[in-house]
């Protein structure tokens, strides 16, 4: 498993509130090989987002503390590397797609301004130099890659002038700006209507496949998992309860929790009965 792009070993995270300690992650193991599409599923509060934040290095210290475990990106130890190198990895080697297109863009700057600033900072961290002109060319190129029909217009638009789906595509474009190898998506498109969400997921899948990226999709939506990911990790109460290829896991779930999760997916046909995973608590 040392060939993995990202590997997480026995990760423990504690949260301390009012002198009380909560064990939120209790030994997570996760492997993301290059060019793979991995899903991390589980109900709200299962620790998906905390896992993602630990990977990105975004946990709020000292509120949250990594008490045990190891994380390697491309063979480099993420937990012991200096802060400066860690920051340099963010947004360049590993990028994150934000989930809410309404609040993730600064309303007072045009899309072009914001994307050029991101690129400027990424370049500075990587020690690259690029002229303002070249930066604009790169931004327009990426906007084209996320299938904006008129990149020049989007470049000059303020966020309020774009629809939710377009804004989500801008967020994807932002994550792709400096050609990351690992893309992390936290509940992408949950703020959008189903049709638009389906388009966004299709776009993400295509982009990841075309460019040979690795994708870590964090979601509670099993339909999304089935369509976009090849391998699934199921989380509950801070541990990975089951993992396996998407096909196997959906065909023959081993754990009761996974079965309950699959049974809880609302269906359009047949009797309308909303299952819950309440029984598992």
């Amino acid at each position: 498993m040392s060939s993995a792009l990202l590997s997480v070993r026995d990760l423990h995270v504690d949260f301390t509130t009012y002198n009380q300690t909560h064990k939120v992650l209790k030994g997570i193991n996760l492997d993301i090989p290059p060019h793979s599409q991995i899903a991390l599923v589980g109900e709200s509060g299962s620790g998906k987002t905390v896992t993602m934040k630990a990977i990105m290095g975004l946990l709020r210290q000292p509120l949250a503390r990594i008490t045990a475990g190891e994380m390697y990106y491309d063979g480099r130890d993420l937990l012991t590397m200096p802060d400066k190198e860690r920051v340099a990895l963010r947004g360049t080697a590993m990028s994150m797609i934000f989930q809410d297109p309404m609040t993730s863009l600064n309303p007072v700057f045009t899309i072009g301004d914001q994307m050029r600033t991101i690129l400027k900072y990424a370049d500075r961290r990587l020690g690259r130099t690029r002229s303002a002109r070249e930066r604009k060319v790169r931004v327009l190129e990426v906007l084209g890659q996320v299938r904006m029909r008129d990149p020049e217009r989007v470049f000059q638009s303020y966020p309020i002038m774009l629809s939710g789906g377009m804004r989500q595509r801008v967020l994807i474009a932002m994550a792709l700006l400096s050609e990351p190898k690992l893309l992390i998506a936290d509940e992408p498109g949950t703020a959008l209507d189903v049709t638009t969400q389906a388009q966004i997921l299709k776009l993400m899948k295509d982009l990841v496949e075309e460019r040979g990226l690795a994708l870590l999709m964090i979601t509670h939506n099993l339909g999304v998992v089935r369509e976009t990911c090849s391998y699934v990790y199921v989380m509950n109460k801070g541990v990975v309860v089951e993992h396996g290829s998407t096909a196997d896991l959906f065909a023959a779930p081993q754990e009761d929790y996974t079965k309950a999760l699959i049974a809880a997916v609302p269906r359009l046909t047949g009797e309308t009965r909303f299952g819950t995973v309440e029984a598992m608590r």
Binding site: R90, G91, T103, Q114, I118, Y121, A122
Partner: peptide, 13 residues
């Protein structure tokens, strides 16, 4: 508390 501020912090601004 807006996400774009968090995003900027994430990027090491």
């Amino acid at each position: 508390v807006q996400d774009y501020i968090e995003a900027a912090e994430t990027l090491g601004a």
